[in-house]
Design a protein around this nucleic acid. Structure first.
Length: 380
DNA sequence: TCTGGGGTCCTAGGACCC
DNA sequence: TCTGGGGTCCTAGGACCC
């Protein structure tokens, strides 16, 4: 059996636990600090009750509920809490998997009373952090995760051989993790509407209609292996940052300054964990070009913001000599490897490496952006 | 005033090598 | 002169998740 823990309105609940004034009030956590120009990252249950949900634009949320409380997301708080919860769960003595910032999976074997265990876990989390969690229990991680969503907030769902089909029948297939909008529409056309319909389809049917994804889906739905779950990635595949401007902009100096800024942010994170990257992806969005994304692989892996920026400029050259109107910009690095400890050959490279180390030290001691390349001040 | 930002996995076509 | 087949890497883009 797998026990899946899913925190209720995680970010919003943490903010309410920290600040009692926010308790019992409709609250949204925005992904950035401009009340009207962001989207809902998390909504408290008081806000959810009036129809506000994650992904909604904050402007829309305020239209529904003008006296909404607003807090800008502060990732470090949530990461810290998440780690504490992970430690707490390990104390129960089972193998625990970190599934995402607000989800955990526990291999509870053949624990005689899983429901009781679920209550103990929820109680302990509440006692320690003053926030609630919902739990799903089933024979595999996908069904357990589904279960955790069926009785939210602050609930437990146990899916057994006895009640499984009866429960699956009551929910649309899109409830299942991995079945998004387009897959759900496609399945609808095949007469597969409920979770039960999907559950009862053969591996062959799913493969024929959904390809490789169909096989994975079948295996995940029916498996009884302990953790047949997405393995915890031991290393990231990519590191990126993006930024949406308040409005579309034509000024090339400004756009380039933002590309440089994002390149520096990515590079700093790469250096922090000793990665370097061989492939740079640049993404631009604008009214004329829609989404333009291009990537390029290079021989030499790097983690210097200036170098990443210069590689971005090579990619941008594909768009011709003039830059288009730009609304959003993204820089992502992939093809990650541990940076080598070989001493560079040229004096210039050694000096550059020393410079970056010094910059990183200053920023970690005095705070991010204590020191940065002057050119990025043009991005304002 | 009007939709963020961080990711993963998969597919399919082209280039290139043996 | 015409023709197979296997494999890898790169690139663009779609779908999905939190």
């Amino acid at each position: 059996m797998i026990l899946h823990v899913d925190m209720d309105a995680f970010f919003a609940s943490i903010e309410q636990a920290i600040n009692p004034r926010l308790k019992g009030k409709p609250l949204i956590v925005g992904s950035r600090n401009s009340k009207m120009h962001t989207v809902v990252c998390a909504a408290s249950y008081e806000a959810k009750r009036v129809g506000i949900g994650s992904g909604m634009s904050s402007a829309e949320a305020f239209k529904i509920c003008p006296n909404l409380e607003f807090v800008a997301a502060e990732q470090s708080k949530y990461i810290w809490t998440s780690r504490q919860i992970f430690q707490l769960l390990k104390e129960f003595g089972f193998e625990v998997l970190y599934a995402s910032i607000d989800e955990f999976q526990i291999d509870i074997r053949d624990t005689p009373n899983p429901k009781l265990l679920a209550e103990e876990i929820r109680e302990k989390i509440f006692k320690e952090f003053n926030i609630t969690a919902s739990v799903g229990i089933a024979k595999n991680w996908l069904l357990a995760k589904l279960g955790s969503k069926l009785n939210k907030p602050n609930g437990v769902t146990v899916l057994t051989e006895g009640n499984l089909e009866g429960v699956l029948e009551r929910f649309p297939a899109a409830k299942i993790c991995g079945v998004g909008k387009s897959t759900a529409e496609f399945l609808d056309g095949l007469g597969v509407n409920t979770c039960l319909d999907l559950y009862q389809k053969s591996a062959r049917f799913l493969e024929q209609n959904l390809g490789k994804y169909g096989i994975n889906l079948y295996v995940s739905l029916h498996s009884t292996d302990s953790f047949d779950s997405p393995e915890v990635p031991e290393k990231p595949k990519s590191v990126g940052h993006s930024y949406t401007l308040p409005r579309a902009v034509l000024n090339p100096q400004f756009i380039k300054a933002w590309i440089r800024t994002l390149s520096e942010m990515v590079a700093q994170r790469l250096r922090q964990d000793n990665w370097e990257s061989s492939t740079v992806h640049l993404w631009l969005n604008g009214p004329e070009i829609g989404n333009f994304g291009a990537q390029k692989a290079f021989q030499q892996p790097v983690n210097d913001g200036l170098e990443i920026y210069q590689r971005c400029l090579k990619i941008i050259a594909k768009l011709g000599p003039k830059l288009p109107l730009v609304r959003a910009i993204g820089v992502t690095c992939s093809g990650l490897s541990k940076s080598s400890y070989l001493q560079p050959l040229f004096k210039e490279q050694i000096r550059r490496g020393e410079l970056l180390k010094a910059v990183d030290r200053i920023n970690s001691r005095f705070g991010d952006n204590s020191i940065y390349p002057a050119v990025i001040t043009l991005a304002r």
